[in-house]
């Protein structure tokens, strides 16, 4: 049984400016399953809806974002939840931090600049679940921090006294203190240099390996996925276009968008020209019909303009949504 199962999820931003209403179809028909004990990488276009998808999965939906359709179902050991119908109270008491930790995009700023790291964290945790025994809590945090090989004095410092990498490692350490079943990290290392990035991701991987939980890692950086993820999903304009074990994504991508992404990666030692995609990125307030990638696809066919391609499962656990496969042309 999967840890998380998302079925045909649609989540839109509905806004109204000067009487003109606009619907941004940020997540538009996403289905996926996260298994226990895996690192699932999510990549894709800028603004294709990755953060929005995560907001829904983690139960942090706020207007103007609304779920229009679909299911988000968790199975944590013996207890299960329906994320779209859970009460806020239940979510706060029993799920956040304990079962699901969400390290937000730009979480460097989650730490309060005028308070010591430990104080900020104590505050967050108490507001979320009414944790009261401060002393026991501190003991637990110290033990956890030192187990991860972080110097214990970091807890008593102010955020500005820590390097960006240390801050991010502390944020991850704190988010994993209750051994959640699912850790969601949205671009956790985007602002960091590659040495520090490597250290932060190593730590995340160690935590995962130790507690056999699930990590959902969102980043643009495909090279990071190549080194960290067990499976990778590629999103384009609100939909998942391909999902596969990491080595297939890199060695045998089937969707033309994935193929393009992999080809566009520059490498040190190679200055040969890399092209970006022709045409403009899709506007999610007015997305193209049929396959959303069709206006930019080098292999476009008539059917692509009118019909949304179904997700097909290929051998090797590779899922692809592309008409070329049904046509048997590739």
């Amino acid at each position: 049984m999967a840890l998380l199962s998302v079925q045909n999820l649609r989540a839109y931003y509905r806004t109204e400016v000067y009487g003109i209403s606009r619907i941004v179809r940020a997540v538009d028909g996403v289905s996926l399953e996260l298994q226990r004990n895996e690192i699932y990488g999510l990549a894709g276009e800028s603004s294709c809806g990755k953060t929005t998808l995560i907001k829904v999965i983690s139960g942090t939906i706020k207007p103007p974002l609304r779920v229009e359709e679909g299911k988000v179902h968790y199975q944590f050991g013996s207890f299960e939840i329906d994320m779209l119908h859970i009460s806020p109270e239940d979510l706060r008491r029993n799920v956040r931090w304990k079962e699901i930790s969400y390290i937000m995009q730009g979480s460097m700023s989650v730490l309060n600049p005028v308070r010591r790291v430990i104080t900020t964290f104590y505050d967050i945790v108490t507001t979320h679940q009414g944790y009261t025994d401060r002393k026991a809590f501190l003991g637990q945090v110290r033990a956890h921090i030192s187990k991860l090989g972080l110097p214990p004095d970091v807890l008593n410092l102010y955020p500005h006294q820590l390097s960006g990498g240390m801050r991010q490692r502390v944020a991850i350490a704190l988010a994993t203190i209750f051994q959640p079943s699912l850790i969601i990290a949205d671009e956790p290392t985007t602002a960091l240099d590659v040495v520090v990035q490597r250290g932060v991701l190593q730590m995340l991987k160690e935590i995962q390996a130790e507690s056999n939980n699930t990590v959902l890692l969102v980043t643009h950086d495909l090279a990071v996925h190549a080194n960290v993820a067990d499976r990778v999903a590629i999103m384009y304009a609100g939909r998942i276009v391909e999902e596969a074990p990491t080595s297939l994504i890199f060695n045998a991508p089937r969707h033309p968008y994935t193929q393009h992404l992999i080809r566009s990666l520059p490498m040190i030692g190679d200055r040969s020209s890399r092209a970006s995609l022709p045409g403009a990125p899709p506007n999610l307030a007015n997305p193209p019909g049929g396959c959303r990638f069709h206006p930019r696809c080098p292999h476009v066919m008539d059917i692509c303009r009118v019909e949304v391609p179904e997700m097909m499962t290929l051998p090797g656990n590779q899922r692809v949504a592309c008409h070329l496969l049904a046509e048997g042309r590739r």
Partner: peptide, 24 residues
Amino acid sequence: SVPEPVPEQRAQWIRPIDLGTTEV
């Protein structure tokens, strides 16, 4: 430490490294 987009080479990259702690 630059990650390469080559999953087969990951063993090398995830080898532990030493990081500086506090900036100051």
